[in-house]
Amino acid sequence: MDAKSRILSRIRHALKERPKALLPEHPHPAFSQDPLELFLKRLAENGAEGHLVDKEGARKLLADLAQGLSGAAYGKGVPDALRLLPELPPEEAPLGVSRALFAVAETGTVALSSEDGRKAQLLPPVHLVLVEEERLYPSLLEAFLDLKSLPSAIGLHSGPSKSADIGQVMVKGVHGPGRLVVAVLQGTW
């Protein structure tokens, strides 16, 4: 017998007399707060920056962030109109720009797909994430129940990279970006 059959047969033997427990239903999401307001509040609490912008505002936000920078790394979904800086490899870029799959208000989270890329989300010290307001879910549960297909990897990012492993002092930007900026777009890009 191989390891799999041995393990499974031990499990079946162990469970022979054990009463089966029922699987509870998911709870009904009950959300009264305005998700947009909550999302921006949560981002701030997580140490990230959230901006509500229109198409022009997004360009301005990017122009402000781009000041003095030589280039940026872009996710595949970033619209051409917002590629203001020359493209650099993520290993060298001082700024990464991604487009989120969705966002979650209750935790202040942006969800990033491997289809958009991975390195631009992780390697540059500053990360700008674009997300449409209509892709904002009030809760994690609603977002997860609504996901139709799963890319090879999703990264849920809820703030800048941080660690308190050195003497319990909070340090930002340990491995991932030390600064996370989220632009929530009203309307289309």
Binding site: R42, N46, E106, T107, G108, T109, L140, L150, P151, S152, A153, I154, G155, L156, H157, S158, G159, P160, S161, K162, G176
Partner: peptide, 10 residues
């Protein structure tokens, strides 16, 4: 409320 990063790998 959630850890800063969650990887969901398929």
């Amino acid at each position: 409320r959630l850890s800063t990063y969650v990887s969901l790998i398929q």
